[in-house]
Design a binder for these strands. Structure first.
Lengths: 346, 346
DNA sequence: ACTTCGTACTAAAACGCTTTTGTAGAGTTT
DNA sequence: AAACTCTACAAAAGCGTTTTAGTACGAAGT
């Protein structure tokens, strides 16, 4: 296996040609049009025979392009990031790009430092997932669930209006009026948009938003613990509710645990609805009803958008936002409101 | 932001020195010992002032080193891989290395092709997670849960003897004798070792292995569906069992669903024990009892081992295996065997 | 017969760094 | 005073490509 790879120069010697000619031919340069087919064939044959592969660094050094992009996420081992990454990967690899991954775990210093390191490594562009973004860099940037308008960055976002509507409509149709909410952490880039749209949709469906029934995730652990705590606070208010809309699936899991500990059955006593539809959502007991974000697709779109911008540097940010549609996935954690048995379950 | 980075040559001009001198000083070369402190300080000051950063490609081209490693996993968005990756990342980044990630989704052609692409990108080494590995490459390779003895590859593996013991001892102490098993897929690199050690431990604790109570995962989806199917086959045999040892947490989730559908309560009628302790295991309802693999740590150890081997190329493969210890995590899916209520729950 | 043109290439610079070898001058030894 | 030794740097080669600007030669046009 070890055998050193051949260089262009060596190949040239063996063929009795100059490195320039071979490079031109291999890269299908316009300048090589005048080279007869016979010679070209000889070259390609030799390339195959000696398994010639251009040295990546040499090429990148010349071309000032790395065919590498940087991906920054809050946490690798989180279902959300992982799903987006898998979409990113799919598109990127098939286009001949590789990517670096780093996770900042919400540390501001890392959110600052990593983009610099990426630039140092000459990435051709970068994708920031669920990460507050204010930098305007010298390379194209695409965010997934970023909501800042920064020059040179394109945002891939969920249609939050629809998302809120679809969830609250579902609860409303089931007869729920006393709905509790768990908001996301301050630092999460989705928190604000999501909440403001929930408020709007709640008004629309006649669901009151009462402060005692609004809780918020606190802390930066990626575990359901935070949802558990938030729900405990909700329960402590002693204000009854028949449904709970969690910030995401992870916190919904914690919420369900807290509810059960309080001897409330899910969904008979309290319906729970999550957000994201991460892989394990379908395999909870009971299976989680949730608003699906097409995370993998968002990753793929992010990758596509980024490559497009890399290839046509003119099209800078072109407006800045691409929206994708959410989808309500009804499973087993929501049902007819107990206090309101007249309506039939849909 | 935008402004072009300065090159070594430019810096040299501004300082009235040669590029050589600056390079020597910056890299703390022995040759620069004779340069007076005063000059060195001037250089460092300029480096800071102009934010000089050596061009990565130029440096790698010369040094034939990329400070990049390749990581290959079956599937990015799988809890197992993700946990290992987060351990890998932690160590790698703090040592100034970056890494590429690719997922092969069990496609043999990709398992073949990706290492080649990595080599083309001049990675300094690579880590293969839960991936059958038979190649001997020109760079160091470390596998996580690989079990092949290949020259030049170091394996980081779980102590499977202990793992099987600890799980079956637990079931045995709870009075279980009729235990069902779900084996892993053929292609999973852990399947064989795990099963042979389970057989050994079963003998040790007087638990019979009856063919009708042994099922196997089939298919390459990363979802609990496979465990669900395997459990259905188990139930179809109509041979009763009071405990089930699943291949991993994901399949345990599917198993629990199948059991519930068969009107069997977990854990009152059937105890279930998983494997891995992925993040969501603790937040199942009921919370999953499982054998924890220290996945994050395995990732970290893999990264450490790899860097050590990269730095001292002499130490090639040095024997080949590093073992880590499993830990039984008792949660809510196991309890006293119902047929055997004399023993007290521990 | 002289310029022009097309063909089939090659030379050489450039990308930005590292590293080996060299060297001018000052000081020290013999 | 000649020979050596330090000190403080610099020159230049080389890493493996890509690309621009030639060039040498034969054929065609005027």
């Amino acid at each position: 296996m070890g055998s050193k790879p051949v260089s262009l120069k060596e190949l040239a010697e063996r063929l009795g040609l100059s490195p320039a000619t071979i490079s031109l031919v291999i890269n299908g340069s316009h300048v090589a049009d005048s080279i007869p087919k016979e010679t070209k064939d000889r070259i390609f044959a030799a390339v195959r025979k000696y398994k010639y592969r251009p040295n990546f660094f040499a090429r990148s050094l010349r071309a000032q392009r790395s065919f590498t992009i940087g991906v920054i996420v809050p946490e690798v081992s989180d279902g959300y990031s992982a799903s987006v990454m898998s979409g990113v990967e799919e598109h990127l690899l098939q286009e001949g790009y590789f990517y670096f991954v780093v996770s900042h775990r919400h540390r501001a210093d890392l959110i600052d430092e990593y983009p610099r390191l990426f630039l140092e490594r000459s990435v051709d562009g970068l994708i920031a997932v669920d990460t507050p973004w204010t930098l305007s860099l010298s390379v194209p940037v695409v965010t997934v669930s970023g909501h800042n308008q920064v020059k040179g960055v394109t945002n891939i976002v969920l249609d939050h209006v629809r998302a809120a509507e679809v969830a609250l409509k579902h609860l409303s149709q089931l007869g729920h009026r006393d709905v509790a909410f768990i908001k996301g952490q301050e630092f999460s880039s989705d928190t604000e948009v999501r909440w403001s749209n929930i408020q709007k949709a709640a008004r629309q469906f006649g669901i009151p938003i009462v402060p005692a029934l609004v809780s918020q995730l606190e802390g930066d652990s990626p575990s359901p613990e935070l949802g558990y705590q938030a729900t405990r606070r909700l329960l402590a208010s002693r204000k009854p509710f028949t449904a709970l809309f969690a910030f995401n699936d992870i916190s919904a899991m914690g919420a369900i645990r807290a509810l059960r500990e309080a001897k409330l059955r899910v969904p008979q006593d309290v319906s729970v609805i999550g957000f994201d539809d991460i892989q394990s959502a379908a395999y909870q007991n009971p299976a989680l009803t949730t608003v699906r974000q097409p995370l993998r697709e968002m990753g793929r779109i992010a990758a596509e958008t980024l490559l497009r911008r890399i290839r046509r540097p003119g099209t800078d940010s072109h407006g800045g936002e691409t929206m994708v549609e959410p989808k309500l996935i009804v499973r087993e954690t929501t049902c007819q409101c107990p206090a309101n048995s007249s309506a039939k379950k849909i």
